[in-house]
Structure formats: C-alpha cells, structure tokens
Design a protein around this nucleic acid. Structure first.
Length: 423
RNA sequence: CGGAGCAUAGCUCAGUCUGGUAGAGCACAGCCUUCGGGAGGCUGGGGCCGGAGGUUCGAAUCCUCUUGCUCCGACCA
C-alpha cells in the first residue's frame, strides 16, 4: 500500500477537547472522524485494526463451536415488549418510527433477537448446545459520551448468546467462553484481568468483566496479586473486583495481597439462566417429552473500545505502538528521499519483495515531504517495524530497520531486510 | 437530568470586555531553494463569524431565543 494513496490524514494539531491519549492519537493519526456526539466514522487505518481484532475473535470463537451470524441493527419493539425490556431499558435505547408509524429501535444488545432466532429452529434437546455470535454495530444513547470511541454511543461489539439444556451444561459453556476470552485478549497483546461483576440490566447470577490495565481507565480494580500468575482455571475464582463491589472491611478482602489498578472494561460475560427463555416462551423437549427452558448466557467484547484500550495500554509520547497481532500494517518502508535514485531503487525493491509475501502487510511511504515529518508520522501511526531508506546509508548499500516499540535500530542490507520478513 | 463552558478559514485559535470594512499559525494550490530528523522564501485561493429575532446610523462584538459540541457530576458495557 502506498501511503500517498492511503486515506490516512495525520495531524500535528492536538485536538483541544480530546482528554486522553487514545482519543488524541486516534484523531491525530487519522483513524476516526467525529460526526456527532459519541458517533464516529472509522477511517481506513482504523478499519484495518478492527478487522485484525475481529479475525482473532472469530478464530477463537469458532474454536469453541460458536456460530457467527448477523442479527439486525433495527428491530421491532414487539420483540422487546415480549421480554419486558422495551419499558425497562429507558432512554438509553434509541427508539425509531418507520413510515407506517410502527415502533422500532436500534439494537443496544441482542438477547431478544438471539432467543427469537433460536426458538424458530430448535425444538429438541438434541439441538443443544447452541452458541451464536456476531460482530456488529450497537447503539446506546449514553447520557454522556466521552473519551472518543472509549464511550461512544455507536460502537462495534462482539456479542454472543448461549443456550444449554441444564445449569451444569451452561456452566461449562460459560467456562469455555471465559477461557476463549482470555485467549482473545492475550492474542491482541493485552493482559486481561477478569473481575467478578454484577450482571446489571441483563440480570442473572454469574458474571465476569474483563479489564485491561490502563492509567486512564474508568474502573478501579482491586485484585489478588497471585492473579498475575494464576492458571486460566484459577482465574475464574481468584479475587478481583471493581470499586463498586470493593469492601475494605470484608474478611475476603483483608486476607489478600491486594493490587490496585485502573482498568478499561473490554469484555463482559453473563450467565442469566432462564430469564429470557421463560419470558419469551422458548423451550425444547427433553427425551421424556418435558418442556425445558434453556439456560442462557451472553458474552460481549467491546471491539471498538478495545482499539482505544490497546492504545491506552501501548503508546508513548511519539504515538501509538501497535502490538504486532493487531497492527494495521506489519512494516512501513520510509523512502526518505523520493528524488534520490538509489533510495528509490532500494525502497522499491524492498517494497516489491515484502509486499509479495503473504505474511506481511506493508505501508510504503512515497510522499514527498520532509524527512522529519515522515519519521514523525511513522512513529505516530505506530507500525511495529520501520525500514528507513536514507541517501547516505543507501550510498553504502544499507538501510535501517527500526523497531517501533524498543526504538532499536539495526543497519542491514536490503537483502537482509527482505530475508528478515520473508524468512 | 443538574452545574460550567465553547461555537470566527479544512485544523488550532486571536479578535467580543470597550460596536466602526475579517485576522494569525498550520494545512491547501503554484513557483523556487532545500533534502538524515516536525525546512525556508515568494505568490495565491478560502470565512456574509452556528442559526433566528432584536437594539443601533452601524453587530463577530450588546440583548433574547434556539441548535450543536465539550467538560464536571449522577448513570452505564
């Protein structure tokens, strides 16, 4: 990809009303463009990151037998009247009229529609378990959107819904998803802290939030120090709570070696039993012909928020530092002197060779701007590896390979660079 | 929903108090000089100052209403 043809418009101006690093950096790197309060366009650089994260989520969800769908963003009010949430959800739900004056809404979550789809097709215990998920846009009319996409009104969310024949099966499903979530957050380069949570408006009896540590996080987390070394099995029960549930007087709290950190909630899993299956008269028959209301759970990952959370957890004063797994590009080639024949030849050779590889996505900076601006942009955008082609070193037949995270620079020949990324 | 601000060029902002022909930097376009750490020079295009009403000889500036956005709080994934 040529940078001159790539729609990423960087800016040196620091947006005045962006208070946190991720918001500032997403605006400055040209990832997002605000169109209304809490509503953002996602530009090409950001889309590539959403896609990388989504791909990882899909791989891990498929691995536990989840089936991907697209529910609808616009839904009839009837579905929500049936579950009782049309009245209960309040002003956070964006309500819409169609041309026939029918009541609709823009979906904030999909327990109702998942249940509706399930009941249309599954009539027998033989059809269970079922785990459906999607990665799709949601709208919640937040009282106060803030921090860019961290708390937007429109946001991209992975949401999954499980149906099991018994509480025991549902618990096993919950554990499978729990572990799958740990894997997903680790694969995107983050350290997830699972905390015991309230199940809030969704209702229910078993719930964990997944937090990513970041100084600007909205949650304060109190957790047992041994959580940092606990196995995945132990993590479900290792002490960790947010400030809402933290009780300094309790015996459970006092016995722990407590750590206190700020975190960003990027995932939330719930088991809520038969709340929706009963409300929506959704049942299957067991082998004796008895009606069984499935035990349900729902599982969310804030994909768009995760992008901001990753930036909060991984940036420096120069810009974003993308973990390799979610980086919009793996390598950026900086031709510092586009009017210099040797630089162009070397840069083009490296670009053609690496671009031909299926393993690496390459951003080739062919813009005729000053050296300083080019290097600043590269650091701002935060691609993990920079191949820097400058005239002096090019004369000697070498280029620089710079790691964005460590700042380490190595001189090597173009052939060695190609080998490094092709091999 | 309570409290506080802001709205002037694509962006960041000055000008508003004290009414008198619309400004800067960056960005953009052209030319030239540059070319290894956010370059310099010259030239140019671009805004009836969020909207409506009012006061006035005259309103970006004063008054009223309105819309949008931001921040603090409560709420929330």
């Amino acid at each position: 990809m040529l940078f001159s043809r790539f729609f990423a418009h960087t800016s040196r101006e620091v947006p005045s009303d962006a208070k946190i690093a991720s918001h500032r950096l997403m605006l400055r790197s040209g990832m997002i463009s605000q169109t209304a309060s809490g509503i953002y366009c996602w530009l090409p650089l950001a889309v590539r990151i959403l896609d990388k994260i989504s791909q990882i989520i899909c791989e891990e969800q498929d691995r536990i037998g989840a089936n991907r769908v697209y529910f609808t963003t616009v839904q009839p009010a009837d579905l929500w009247i049936e579950s009782g949430r049309y009245a209960a959800y309040g002003k956070e739900m964006l309500r819409i009229k169609d041309r026939k004056d029918g009541d609709f809404l823009y979906s904030p979550t999909n327990e109702e529609q998942a249940t509706d789809v399930f009941r249309k097709y599954v009539k027998s215990y033989r059809g269970l378990p079922v785990l459906l998920y999607q990665i799709h846009w949601k709208f919640r009319d937040e009282i106060r959107p803030r921090f860019g996409v961290m708390r937007g009104r429109e946001f991209l969310m992975k949401d999954g819904y499980s149906f099991d024949i018994s509480f025991e099966d549902a618990t096993r499903t919950y554990e499978k998803v729990f572990k799958s979530y740990l894997t997903i957050f680790r694969r995107v380069g983050m350290l997830p802290i699972p905390v015991q949570a309230d199940s809030g408006a969704i209702g229910g009896n078993m719930s964990h939030e997944f937090q990513i540590l970041a100084n600007t996080g909205e949650s304060t987390i109190y957790y047992d120090k041994k959580l940092l070394e606990a196995s995945d099995d132990e993590l479900m029960t290792t002490f960790a709570v947010t400030d809402e549930k933290y009780d300094p007087q309790s015996v459970a709290t006092q016995e722990k070696d407590l750590m206190i950190s700020k975190g960003v909630e990027v995932g939330h899993v719930f088991h809520f039993g038969t709340k929706y299956s009963k409300a929506m008269n959704t049942f299957v028959l067991n082998e004796k012909g008895d009606k069984i209301f499935p035990e349900m759970g729902s599982y969310g990952i804030g994909v768009s928020r995760l992008v901001a959370a990753i930036i909060e957890a991984s940036h420096d004063e120069r810009g974003i530092i993308w973990p390799e797994a979610v980086a919009p590009f793996d390598v950026t080639i900086l031709n510092l002197h586009v009017n210099n024949a040797i630089c162009c030849e070397i840069a083009e050779d490296v670009y053609r060779a690496i671009s031909a590889s299926v393993r690496y996505e390459v951003l080739y900076d062919d813009r005729n701007i000053t050296v300083g601006e080019k290097l600043m942009d590269a650091d701002l955008i935060g691609v993990p590896w920079q191949v820097i082609v400058g005239s002096q070193k090019a004369q000697r037949g070498v280029v620089e390979l710079k790691n964005r995270k460590s700042g380490e620079v190595k001189e090597m020949s173009p052939t060695e660079v190609i080998g490094r990324f092709m091999g």
